[in-house]
Amino acid sequence: MSNRLVDSYRNWRQYRDTYNELMRLNQRELDDLGINRYDIPEIARKSGRR
């Protein structure tokens, strides 16, 4: 399997895991972290990059 494919898969998994974890938080928990719900996709995208 090519390294690019493996890296893409790992990045996608990191995005998905981060997105799902943040979406599970309630509004108070997000407020405590200083995160708006609409920022979650961008935060998750950044977590998937290396």
Rank of each mutant, 00 (worst) to 15 (best):
R50M: 07
N3W: 10
M1Y: 02
M23Y: 08
Y15K: 10
M23F: 01
R45W: 01
R45K: 06
S8C: 01
N11A: 15
R49M: 11
I40P: 07
D32I: 03
E29L: 05
S47D: 08
L30Q: 04
Q27V: 09
Y19S: 04
R28E: 15
Q14M: 01
W12C: 04
N11D: 13
R50I: 07
L30N: 07
E21N: 10
R50N: 08
D17E: 15
K46W: 06
N36S: 08
M23I: 07
E42V: 05
I43A: 02
R28N: 13
I43L: 15
R13E: 14
S8T: 07
L22Y: 12
N11Y: 02
I43P: 02
A44W: 04
R4L: 10
D39S: 10
T18G: 05
V6G: 02
V6Y: 08
K46Y: 08
N3D: 13
W12K: 12
R50A: 05
Y19V: 00
G48N: 02
R10V: 05
I43V: 11
N26H: 12
Y38A: 13
R45A: 10
E42K: 12
D17K: 15
M1T: 02
D39W: 02
R13G: 03
R10H: 06
Y15Q: 09
S8Y: 05
L5H: 14
N26Y: 11
L33P: 08
N3L: 14
R13P: 02
Y19G: 03
I35Q: 04
L5D: 15
R49N: 13
N36D: 09
G34P: 10
Q27S: 14
R13Y: 11
L22K: 12
E42I: 03
L5I: 13
P41T: 10
Y9W: 10
D7E: 15
N20Y: 06
I40K: 09
D7M: 14
R50S: 07
A44T: 07
D32C: 02
N20I: 06
V6T: 08
N20W: 08
M1H: 06
I43K: 02
Y38S: 14
P41I: 06
R24S: 09
N26D: 15
S8E: 14
L5Y: 11
L5N: 14
D32Y: 04
E21F: 01
Q27F: 06
R37N: 02
I43D: 01
Q14A: 09
S2Q: 05
R24E: 09
R49G: 07
L30E: 08
E42W: 01
N26V: 10
D17A: 15
R50H: 07
N3F: 09
L5M: 11
N11R: 15
S2G: 13
L33D: 07
L5G: 15
R50Q: 08
M1P: 03
R24P: 00
E21I: 00
S47E: 12
R37I: 03
E42Y: 06
D32E: 12
L33I: 03
L22P: 05
D31H: 04
N11F: 01
N20C: 05
N11S: 15
R50C: 01
Y15L: 08
R28K: 13
L22T: 10
N20G: 06
R16E: 13
Y9M: 09
Q14E: 08
G34R: 11
R4D: 10
Q27A: 12
G34N: 11
N36Y: 07
M1W: 04
